[in-house]
Simulated assay, not measured.
Amino acid sequence: MSFPHPLLESRTLGRLRVHAIQAGGQQLDGGAMFGVVPKTLWSRRLPADDKNRIPMGMRCLLIEHDDGLVLLDTGLGNKETAKFHEIYGIENAGGEGRTALEDGIRAAGFAPDDIAVVINTHLHFDHAGGNTWRAPTGEVLPTFPNARYVVQAGERAYAEHPNERTAASYFPPNWAPIVAAGRFEFIAGAREIVSGISVRPTPGHTPYHQSVVVQSGGETLCFLGDVVPTAHHLPLPWIMGYDVEPLVTLESKRTLLAEALREDWLLVFEHDAQAGFGRVVHDGKAYRLAE
């Protein structure tokens, strides 16, 4: 697999400058990514390799805000083993022993120490793994030492009490050092985090998954997280097999995409290896990406 390109896509949203950073690539089973959708349908959009895997991105969003830099999700990080990288087809290496996320932050003109707020959509390893990093000494440290981190309190409880199905997605080193440092804020429900940047519950993938809505100058952007992981998941019933409550995901998508269409939101697709930003249309049968 070739690393998803480009590393950095930047644009203006009202008064804000936003940067989509491709924090790495991975290869996941196509059947798992599309759930009950038959392979004859999804493979027309994303052909699988000989292991039935399809290319995926790990896109994060960096927002230049008056209250400081805000980072949405953090990719995988550098803590996992070579075997783990092989299983999931991970490519995310960056400079200085860090990852592509840190490279992307520097490409935007900043450094990890500049980040003021980190918002996690949820705590799965490919969304919160970059919250922390393993230093050459072996110690696991917050990647963004001056930031406050934000996630739903219910997501933390769900992550810390996994079952046989969810344990493979939640790794305590991705949040425990930040909790120990007193830098994790656990919230309940919809909340404005800083002026114009709000979270809203979009459950289904996990019971406490959240998406992030950014508003400035009459424009609105939504960082979807895993409620709609790629542009190929825009049709309402195209839902990942990874979702623990797929029928709840269906209703989250129905509500969110109707609002996105009505108000002409700009969407960010976190796991799409190609489409970073996009708007939706409805062709009478299904939602799809606008041309």
Results as ranks from 00 to 15, higher is better:
80 E>R: 13
214 V>G: 01
52 N>H: 14
200 R>N: 05
166 T>G: 02
30 G>T: 07
221 L>G: 02
115 I>Q: 03
179 V>N: 05
255 T>I: 08
103 D>W: 10
138 G>K: 08
154 G>K: 04
62 L>C: 05
152 Q>Y: 03
192 E>A: 06
85 H>S: 07
130 G>L: 06
244 V>L: 06
265 W>S: 02
158 Y>Q: 02
69 L>K: 07
269 F>Y: 10
248 V>M: 13
221 L>P: 03
36 V>T: 10
106 R>N: 03
140 V>T: 14
192 E>I: 01
143 T>K: 05
237 P>N: 12
145 P>H: 07
275 A>M: 09
86 E>V: 02
150 V>L: 11
80 E>P: 00
36 V>S: 11
30 G>R: 09
241 G>A: 07
79 K>M: 13
80 E>S: 06
84 F>A: 15
3 F>N: 06
15 R>Y: 08
52 N>V: 02
122 H>V: 00
37 V>L: 10
171 F>N: 01
39 K>S: 11
75 G>F: 02
148 R>Q: 10
195 S>Q: 14
83 K>N: 12
154 G>A: 04
271 H>S: 13
27 Q>Y: 05
180 A>I: 03
20 A>F: 05
275 A>L: 10
271 H>D: 11
15 R>P: 08
44 R>V: 04
266 L>Q: 12
51 K>A: 12
208 Y>M: 00
267 L>D: 00
136 P>E: 14
262 R>C: 06
140 V>L: 14
109 G>Q: 05
151 V>G: 00
217 G>N: 12
235 P>W: 07
144 F>E: 00
281 V>R: 13
14 G>R: 10
188 A>V: 15
263 E>S: 13
225 G>I: 02
194 V>T: 10
169 S>K: 13
7 L>M: 10
95 G>Q: 11
194 V>F: 11
199 V>I: 14
27 Q>A: 13
265 W>G: 01
267 L>V: 02
129 G>K: 12
83 K>R: 11
107 A>V: 05
